[in-house]
Design a protein around this nucleic acid. Structure first.
Length: 461
DNA sequence: TTAGGGTTAG
């Protein structure tokens, strides 16, 4: 489209100026068309239009974005060489005597090498942005980037927030967490206030290296400096899932997640779900060493995903003294599995700290009228959870219905879903016209929970 | 009016 506008312009007899050419080059750069960008740059020179620094930077950036780092550096060098000829005569002579090769030779050679045929010399003056772009082209070479930063200082240019951020990123990406943290401090000392991007980069470095304590501490620090985390910051922190994370870690993530929602951001629940899932699945690792990996095909529909997270958060925040009750209403099979495993994970962690199981575990599946057929989803959840508890974990599961609408006696009903482990506890003998509301529940006996915990702890020894 | 830094999934 940009190129078409250019044609329209020319046919309308309008002469493109520096900004026009810059926009055209930028458009090509954004579309990843480096060759076309270079071609336009040459065309501009042939047209007698002088590029300014910004235009040159756009071209350099085009190369860097296309991973043509070497090309960016060679362009920069050739422009610097050309600048020598714009200098006063005496200065030029001094430089020429220092250089072994002639300037003209160097220029024509570079023109051939890089496919640039300059019709005119350019008065190129690097800016802070030029150095920032080139520092990005250093990849993970910290010393090269640092050298460029020193060079900009000698040129009388002051590194800005972007410069420092790039340096932190390069340092951190080579695994040097201490170094990255140190540069953040140096940046502040140099009078450049670290902004949200600088903090996000350092947090990213910590997260990548599983320095979660440090990551959360930086998150708190930026808040102290009144720097508001943005969506990128939150996502970077929430990406911090790690296998076998403790419930403390999961809890911290949930706190960040809640903070994020309070700040008005729509969270990407994907990571958090994965964190919780991985953390939960840790519960059955010991039990079934030969069992195939639980496939985590989250076939989520469009309904809000926060329900699952809220349920898990709710259970994580419960006190030790509270009874073991789980509400699975409204959850899918996979989500129900996650919530149940989350509770078991909490139970396991409490047990390892010396807590004793004094209650049965009660799982609510749904509420419906007696004799009405529970919906397919609910039956699926019941089936999946029963299988999980009985077959995968070897727990004793009883199927129970609790009448809650009419204030008559509580009764229990059996189901045809329970297997050998279940007890037959009676049948539904109520008159059908009364149709009280019944809560479908599963019960895991405390006895089997204790056995399970004991078995697990002895397995580890 | 044109340029430079941070995240990820499907």
């Amino acid at each position: 489209m940009a190129l078409k506008v250019k044609d329209d312009m020319l046919s309308a007899g309008v002469t493109p100026n520096t900004v026009t050419w810059s926009s055209l080059i930028s458009a090509c750069a954004n579309a990843g068309l480096v060759e076309k960008a270079i071609q336009l740059f040459e065309e501009m020179l042939l047209d007698g239009c002088e590029p300014n620094s910004q235009c040159c930077n756009i071209l350099l950036h085009a190369c860097v974005e296309a991973s043509q780092y070497d090309r960016a550096f060679r362009l920069f060098e050739s422009w610097k060489r050309n600048r020598v000829q714009d200098m006063p005569e005496d200065d030029k002579e001094n430089r020429a005597s220092n250089a072994s090769s002639g300037i003209t030779t160097a220029r024509s050679r570079s023109s051939q090498l890089y496919g640039l045929n300059f019709a005119k010399e350019l008065s190129f003056m690097p800016t802070v942005a030029t150095y920032n772009i080139l520092m990005k082209a250093c990849g993970s070479d910290y010393y090269h980037a640092k050298a460029l930063m020193d060079e900009m200082n000698t040129m009388g240019l002051s590194p800005n927030q972007i410069t420092w951020s790039i340096l932190i990123d390069i340092c951190g990406s080579s695994g040097n967490i201490e170094g990255a943290l140190k540069i953040l401090r140096t940046m502040r000392e140099a009078g450049i206030e670290p902004d949200v991007v600088a903090y996000t980069i350092v947090i990213k470095v910590c997260v990548e290296n599983k320095y979660m304590k440090q990551a959360f501490s930086l998150f708190a620090e930026m808040k102290r400096y009144q720097i508001q985390p943005n969506l990128v910051t939150y996502n970077t922190l929430l990406r911090a899932r790690s296998r076998y994370g403790s419930s403390l870690e999961v809890k911290q993530c949930l706190v960040v997640y809640q903070d994020m929602r309070r700040a008005g951001y729509r969270s990407n629940d994907f990571y958090l779900k994965q964190l919780i899932e991985e953390w939960c699945e840790g519960v059955i690792q010991c039990d079934n060493q030969n069992q195939e990996e639980f496939s985590s095909s989250m076939t989520d529909t469009e309904r809000p995903q926060s329900l699952l997270l809220e349920k898990v958060a709710e259970h994580l925040q419960k006190n030790i003294a509270e009874s073991l009750t789980i509400d699975l209403q409204g959850l899918t099979k996979v989500e129900a599995r996650i919530v149940v495993l989350a509770v078991l994970q909490v139970v396991k962690e409490k047990y390892s700290r010396g807590h004793i199981i004094s209650d049965d575990m009660l799982i609510t599946l749904g509420i419906g009228k007696v004799d009405t057929i529970p919906d397919e989803l609910e039956l699926g959840v019941k089936d999946a959870i029963t299988k999980l508890l009985q077959d995968e974990l070897g727990l004793e599961v009883l199927s129970k219905g609790l009448e809650i609408a009419s204030n008559t006696q509580m009764y229990l009903e059996s189901t045809n879903h329970s297997t050998s482990n279940s007890e037959y506890l009676g049948s539904n003998e109520l008159p059908t016209e009364r149709r009280p509301v019944v809560m479908q529940r599963l019960m895991v006996t405390r006895k089997s929970l204790r056995q399970w915990l004991y078995k697990r702890s002895s397995l580890r020894r």
